[in-house]
Structures are given as structure tokens and as C-alpha cells.
Design a binder for these strands. Structure first.
Lengths: 114, 114
DNA sequence: CTAAAATATATTGCTAACCAACATATGTCC
DNA sequence: GGACATATGTTGGTTAGCAATATATTTTAG
């Protein structure tokens, strides 16, 4: 109950923004993305594998990101993703959308607390 | 496609915060809550009846809000809701949670765009 | 040297939840 | 009298997260 489910719901719409943002300008693999989200949010946001990997597949299916396998000796195989041109366009949309959403919440709630 | 679904996902976790905030300090009925969200967000956020009313029932079931029917002559019957003590506690939690969430997103994305 | 933990990716099945569409009824404005 | 706003309600289809489970390699601690 309580905090688990709140974060869970809040995370939904922002997941794409997070992943696309982290891939902006540099390639990263899935596990790295998950860890980055966890560490940068200081543990407030955690993406489980059963959410993260399927989401990456979905974004790749849509043509927003492009993955490729990289195998180096003395290292587990990794799938590195990069933003596509279409992905960059969507990222820009998501950034605008997120800012507008936060502002809308602020207007409705009054946000004396923030 | 696009904007419809983003807002839809983003809205999920914040719906409770919005409703509890609007009931903070004053009673309101369902239709009024829906209209307030729409107008204060300048149309950016719209709660359809099939989302809004069931959500109100859920919040009432949990004991966070308390509804009562009000019938006045020359007026449609309305169900007015007020925050309960438990609801005020949850609202405070949601406010903290929302602020933490926004901050986490900012840290992860860098938010050069904001 | 070995056991545990971290790294890295993957799938299934349960559950929760939004919302389009449909439904009912009254008040107001022209 | 007709159109529109007000006001509340339900059903059924679809989407999606995630706990649990799985496999395999590399690193670290004792």
C-alpha cells in the first residue's frame, strides 16, 4: 500500500521521457538505463526489468530508438540503444508535454506546498 | 495518436492529488471537480465521466472523502464531497510525493528544456 | 578457490485501471 | 420546442505494469 503504488502510477507517463532523455546524445544499454534512473533519482524511481525491457522493445518497434548487440571479450553481451531522428522528435514533444503537465497540476492544486 | 495518450498516462498518478487538492478546505460535487480541472488547466487536462466518478467512489470507499446528496429545488441533485481527516493525511503525502517525483524527473532528464 | 553479489537480458501471467460509448434526467437559453 | 449545459451513472474492451521466475557471465569478498 501507499508509496509503492503512487510512484508506480506517476511513473507511467514519464517512462518514455526518461528513456529518451537518457539516450539523447549518447548510446546506452538497458541495464545502464535502469541503474541511471535509480541512482539519479536517489532510489525514488526504480524500473523493474519486466517494465524496462519490454518498454525498450516497444520504443524500438515504433522506430524511436535503434538497438544493436555489442559483444566484447571479458564482458556480458549488451544491447546498446541510440535515438533515431524520429525519436528526437518525440523527445522534444515529450519535454513540452511534461512541462505543460507539471504547470497544469500546479495551476489546479494551487501548489502552496511546492 | 500522440498527445491524447501522453496526457492519459501522465494523468494516472496525479488524479488523486488533483481531486484531494480541490476538496481541501471546501466541499465540491463531481461535475464541478471535472470542470475545475478542465478550466484551470486551460483544457490541457480533461477527466471523462467514466474515469472521474469511479475514482470518486474509490476515494470514498477508502475513507479519504465523504459524500452526501444535496437536493435543492430548481437544481439537479448533486453529490457533494468533503475531505475526511484520513483524506487530509493522504493529501499531505501526495503533495510530498508529487514534488519528489517532479524533482526526480528533473534530475534524471537534466531538464535543460524546462 | 569458492560463494555471493553484481551485471545483463528475457518471459509469463496476474491484476489494475482508463475511457469510449451508452444511458438517464433536469435546467436554461433563444 | 430544440439545443446545449448540467449532473450522475455503467459496461466492456484494451492497455500496461510488475512480481516472479529464468539464464548466464563477471567481479568481489572471505
Amino acid at each position: 500500500m501507499s508509496n509503492q503504488s503512487i510512484d508506480r502510477d506517476l511513473k507511467k507517463g514519464s517512462a518514455e521521457l526518461l528513456i529518451l532523455s537518457l539516450l539523447n546524445g549518447r548510446q546506452r544499454h538497458g541495464y545502464e538505463i535502469g541503474k541511471l534512473i535509480e541512482t539519479r533519482s536517489k532510489g525514488a524511481l526504480v524500473f523493474r526489468v519486466a517494465s524496462l525491457y519490454p518498454l525498450l522493445y516497444k520504443l524500438e518497434d515504433r522506430g524511436w530508438i535503434q538497438g544493436r548487440w555489442v559483444e566484447k571479450p571479458g564482458q556480458r553481451r549488451r544491447r546498446y540503444y541510440r535515438l533515431t531522428a524520429a525519436g528526437r522528435k518525440i523527445l522534444a514533444e515529450r519535454q513540452v508535454g511534461w512541462a505543460a503537465f507539471v504547470e497544469a497540476i500546479r495551476r489546479i492544486t494551487g501548489a502552496e506546498y511546492a
